[in-house]
Design a protein around this nucleic acid. Structure first.
Lengths: 236, 236
DNA sequence: CCTACCGATCGGTAGG
DNA sequence: CCTACCGATCGGTAGG
């Protein structure tokens, strides 16, 4: 992801250009500056809340002047929406990768004749663990501000913006249901699966409020604890 | 707390008092007006967030002029803090009543020789159910805005205000731990009790985001589902 | 992307 | 508790 960021101060400029030093015209860092704004906004929205963060705060965080964010975004709300949409798209990618890795590890085990698990597909419990682990990653890794902003600031979206975010959310929550249904059939989950999904995701989402990356233990251990809390031991 | 607040309009003004019609002077609603502000603020803070709610919004909600809330509260933040403190004190009362009712129902059962439960004290599972049920009451009953405001707006408190709220929170969370420890000993909870408490309270707290009082089913049913999700069946 | 600016709104106050 | 008001800040824009 490291793009070429040539400041190009030497390529032209016969004399000294007016104003502070400029980058060369072929330095197209438009997307870069825009992304910087998005990241700064995500961090500020998460720490202070959307309404309590001024567009001046965001501009200052990336060394811009107060009016400049509006060159990249037509409004403060559009910036918020972009944070959420990017956060959810990234979360969907992470979730898909986690499920894919789970399947592949089982395919590999099967390919070498390792069939102790009895079936080709990962067990429902393993699948739930993978979903939980990916979810903690998305919420709690240092710098993971985008999805927490979505979780806690969606009230500030316009109804139209909310629609697109809700659609992404539904897509993200979809894989949880069949896994919980499997666990229910196995007798390892004694609760309505729809309510169970709401309660489980709530338990995980709330970790944003109390988890401390420096002293909170590993996300692996946390995922194990959560899994053991929600599903019952295998029937003997 | 109802102090004598004589507006004195009648002691002087011999004709018709200026301004809109006044209530009679013996209508001492000082505490009442103050409580009205607190309730209106709680509802607005919950629905729009603290930073997005103006003191003018709050004043208008109770029919006051824009500067009048500052007759009752020295700042917007003091009003927020009062919402949270009242919410937590009320929650503590509700929780204590629920636990007391649980114990009394067992005492009564014992008094008439109904000893099917084998012991005098309520079972840990029953105690957890009572805690969960009371918690849902505190969060989800129509008009229960105070504690949700505390859960979602504590960032807006000053450090000093936060201390008093955190102390109330700790008091509220205290009774959960011994109950979870009992369940752990019984083998009905397979997780670190401290983490279990965080995860369980998170699952419940998050219900504020999705529960719909009109169509969401009863809080009794919801409590049963949550209980079955978190604790394992009794050992055979 | 900066400069310079605008109208609106905000929390809060004095004085009655 | 209202009236009248203040300074500060805010989101956003024109023009370069």
């Amino acid at each position: 992801m490291s793009e070429t960021l040539d400041t190009g101060l030497l390529t032209e400029a016969p004399r000294r250009p007016r104003g502070r030093p400029r980058k060369s015209p072929d330095d197209r860092d438009e997307g870069n500056r825009r992304q910087l704004l998005i990241h700064a906004a995500a961090a500020l929205f998460r720490n202070k809340g959307f309404a309590a963060t001024s567009t001046r705060d965001i501009a200052a965080a990336v060394g811009m002047q107060s009016g400049s964010p509006f060159y990249h975004f037509k409004s403060k709300g559009a910036l918020l929406h972009e944070v959420m949409a990017q956060g959810m798209r990234s979360a969907l990618r992470q979730q898909a990768l986690a499920l894919q890795a789970l399947r592949q590890s089982h395919d590999a085990a099967q390919a070498v004749g390792d069939e102790y698990s009895g079936g080709a597909a990962p067990s429902p419990a393993e699948a739930l663990r993978a979903l939980i682990r990916a979810h903690f990653d998305i919420l709690l890794c240092p710098g993971s501000d985008f999805v927490p902003v979505m979780l806690y600031e969606w009230r500030s979206l316009t109804p139209r913006q909310r629609e697109t975010v809700v659609a992404l959310q539904r897509e993200y929550e979809a894989p949880w249901l069949p896994v919980l249904q499997d666990l229910h059939r196995q007798g390892r989950l004694h609760a309505n699966v729809h309510l169970a999904r709401l309660l489980i995701l709530g338990a995980l989402n709330w970790s944003v409020q109390w988890f401390n990356a420096e002293q909170g233990g590993s996300l692996d251990e946390l995922s194990d604890v959560a899994l053991r809390l929600f599903i019952h031991p295998e029937a003997a």
